[in-house]
Design a protein around this nucleic acid. Structure first.
Length: 427
RNA sequence: GUGAGCGUAGCUCAGCCGGUUAGAGCACCGGUCUGUGGAACCGGGGGUCGUGGGUUCAAGUCCCAUCGCUCACCCCA
């Protein structure tokens, strides 16, 4: 059995009997449907973009200093013409690409879209982190108003709460405008350069290109240096406009009654983010793991060769939400069970059962037994399936042209003619 | 990329200080029960003990290697 093919590490089958909660199809579907309902009722429209794009869609948007590129976390493939494609490592750039491609800038703004589907990152898998995982994603494009940021955060929280999650923490920050970030990086360089020899190799390498990322270094020596120097957070370097924008988002959230904490040191892995950035955390997944995150990306469209299109959006990690739901003991609605279970009692009854089932479908949820069994076994099967009615088809029924129909809850049983079944169940 | 842990039936696992034919529970199939309630009892199928090598009279058990899985670091969803 050693040679039997398996799923690629970090990719998972999602099916009803899956042992791990995040891969149980009904749980998965419940999360998707709930999110879909919340977002549709907020007026967002569903879009599905391809799961692969030209590499540049993600490369340009993501920025050269970003870890997704630097650490080669993208799955890149080459088509026959030598064109480089990439499995999407995030949905936002693809949605913005679609917005531009279909001229959505002439639609009434903002254009609010949502999608869900697989996302791919070539990281080493572990709990709550997979190479193929799934996100629900929401984007509000075409209007740079803090109202949309606040709405996005509120919608995200609403999805979690509708699912039944408690113990949420919204961490809100701002990464400022590009000029603010440049100023902050300048500040960091000036502060850290004299102490470069005490920083880790990785951090030293980041000092020139992207000093902000030194702040979340996990190296103890780095953190010791940072603490000693008393580094000021990004949030204190916001320009006037970014500052006003951030304050407005906070005020709106308070008005909406959405609880949040300001995280002054919140940074983003992708270069296209500006101003608002947030993460929603849950205790279940561990201190470092977020259920979802979002932010504003006003410069992204231009990086993709499009017009200037402001945007704000979020992604929700479906598997991580499932882990949180399990942790909180939230019960997911079970799949419906059959109204009728048709049980063939002998060989010729198999096709009779199927024929009858096919007459009743799809208006009635009908399952059949595929192997003739004793009435006792057939009844057990029907009970296990949770059927409302069981219909026996055997020799006696054939002789009289009827089926024996039994209501499982009451135990009542009678013989009915097949044509009567339609009116019995179709209501 | 770095570190740790774990690989015995479809699943969860037991298997002592190395000892004869490798076990249990769950699941599946059948019988008791030849046309009626999830039970119970009995039976059955299913294993090259991840793989390769070594030590030994003897290896699921000890040693080495290798592969796989999982968790953690990093990053984030």
């Amino acid at each position: 059995m050693g040679l039997m093919l398996r799923a690629v590490p970090g990719s998972n089958d999602i099916f009803p009997q899956a042992k791990e909660y995040p891969f149980r199809e009904p749980v998965f579907r419940h999360i998707v449907r709930t999110a879909e309902e919340v977002l549709r009722n907020a007026g967002a429209q569903m879009i599905h973009t391809p799961i692969f794009e030209q590499l540049e869609v993600f490369q340009r948007g993501v920025g050269l200093t970003s870890d997704i590129v630097v650490k080669k976390e993208m799955f890149v493939l080459e088509d026959r013409g030598g064109r480089l494609l990439a499995l999407r490592p995030e949905p936002t750039a693809a949605v913005v690409r679609a917005y531009n491609e279909h001229g959505m800038k002439v639609w009434p703004q903002p254009v609010r879209l949502f999608t869900w589907g697989p996302i791919f990152r070539g990281e080493r898998p572990q709990k709550g982190r997979y190479r193929q995982f799934h996100q629900v994603d929401y984007e509000a494009l075409g209007l740079a108003d803090p109202l949309l940021d606040a709405e996005a955060i509120a919608l995200m929280v609403r999805i979690y709460r509708t699912l039944g999650l408690r113990n949420l923490e919204v961490r809100l920050g701002s990464v400022g405008d590009p000029e603010d970030r440049a100023r902050y990086n300048q500040y960091l360089r000036g502060l850290l350069m004299p102490h470069a020899d005490r920083l880790s190799e990785e951090s030293r390498a980041r000092l020139e290109a992207n000093p902000m990322r030194i702040l979340d270094s996990k190296s103890e020596q780095d953190q010791a240096v940072l603490a000693e120097l008393g580094v000021r957070p990004m949030l204190e370097f916001l320009g006037e406009e970014a500052q006003a924008f951030h304050e407005q988002v906070c005020r709106y959230l308070e008005r909406l009654g959405v609880a949040y904490t300001v995280d002054p040191s919140l940074v983003r892995g992708l270069d296209y983010y500006v101003r608002t950035a947030w993460e929603v955390h849950h205790m279940a997944i561990g201190a470092k793991s977020a259920l979802g995150g979002g932010g504003r990306y006003d410069g992204l469209s231009e990086m993709l060769g499009g017009p200037r299109v402001p945007g704000v959006g979020f992604g929700i990690g479906i598997e991580r939400v499932a882990i949180a739901l399990e942790q909180e003991g939230v019960v997911v609605p079970p799949d419906p069970s059959p109204t009728l279970y048709l049980a063939p009692l002998d060989e010729p009854a198999k096709i009779e059962a199927l024929a009858l089932a096919e007459q009743l479908r799809p208006r009635v949820y009908v399952e059949i037994g595929y192997t003739p069994k004793s009435p006792r076994k057939a009844l057990e099967d029907a009970l296990r399936k949770g059927a409302q009615y069981v219909g026996f088809l055997g020799e006696a029924e054939r002789a009289r042209g009827v089926i024996t129909l039994k209501h499982l809850q009451s135990g009542e049983q009678r013989e009915v003619e097949p044509f009567q079944l339609h009116s019995l169940f179709e209501e």
